[in-house]
Amino acid sequence: MSIHISEKRVGVLFAILGVVLFSTKAVMVKIAYGYGVDHLSLLLFRMIFAVPVYVIIAFWKKPLNPKQIQRKDFLWLVFFGVVGYYLASLFDFMGLQHIKAGLERIILFVYPTIVVLLSWVVFKKKITKTQAVAIAITYIGVIVIFSNEMGVNSGQKVLWGGFLVFLSAITYAAYLVGSGWLIPKFGVMQFTSYAMIVSTFCVVVHYLLVSDLDIFRFSWEVYLLGCAMAFFATLLPSFLVSAAIERLGASTFSIFGSLGPVSTIILAYLFIGEQITLIQLFGMLVVIGGVAFVSKK
Rank of each mutant, 00 (worst) to 15 (best):
F91Y: 13
A228T: 08
A136H: 07
W120C: 10
A32T: 04
L96G: 00
P261N: 10
G289M: 03
K126P: 01
I16Q: 11
N153E: 14
Y194P: 00
I56T: 09
V121Y: 13
S193V: 10
G178V: 08
N65Y: 15
C227A: 14
I215E: 04
V51I: 04
H4E: 12
P237N: 06
G283W: 14
V121F: 15
Y86N: 02
G260Y: 15
L281K: 07
A268I: 06
T130C: 01
H39F: 15
N153W: 10
V210M: 08
K157R: 14
A132M: 13
I16E: 08
Y86C: 02
V27S: 03
T113C: 14
V29D: 00
F45R: 05
L209N: 01
S258D: 04
Y85E: 01
L108S: 06
H98S: 01
V122I: 15
V83L: 13
M196T: 08
L77T: 14
I265P: 06
F59S: 02
F91I: 02
A230M: 06
F231Y: 14
I140E: 06
K72V: 10
V198Y: 11
L235Y: 10
Q70I: 11
A32N: 03
K72P: 01
L213E: 03
R247Q: 05
V51D: 01
S199N: 03
T264R: 08
R9G: 06
G187Y: 10
Q70T: 09
F218R: 03
L87R: 09
L43Y: 03
A32D: 01
H206L: 02
A134C: 07
E149I: 04
L285Y: 13
T252A: 14
I114C: 05
M229G: 05
L225M: 13
K62E: 11
V241E: 10
F146C: 00
V165W: 12
Y111P: 00
G283E: 12
S242C: 03
G290F: 12
S168N: 04
S254H: 09
F74H: 15
N153Y: 15
S119H: 08
L117Q: 04
M28S: 09
N65K: 14
A244T: 10
I48E: 04
G11C: 01
T130Q: 13
I183V: 13
F93N: 05
V198G: 03
L44R: 09
A174G: 15
L248Y: 11
T138V: 07
F93Y: 15
V222L: 06
W160S: 02
I183P: 03
L75A: 10
N153T: 06
V116L: 12
L224R: 08
S254K: 11
V27N: 07
T252V: 14
W120K: 10
T264S: 07
L117F: 11
F282G: 04
G249N: 09
T171R: 05
W60L: 12
E221F: 11
F239R: 06
S251R: 15
S147M: 14
R71G: 04
Y33T: 00
S251T: 12
I255K: 15
L44A: 03
I107N: 05
L40N: 05
S154Q: 13
S168T: 05
S119N: 12
A88N: 11
S119L: 12
F218L: 02
A250L: 13
S242T: 10
L270T: 05
F22H: 11
V198R: 10
I276Q: 10
T138Y: 14
S295I: 13
F166R: 02
K30W: 07
F232H: 09
G18L: 07
A101H: 12
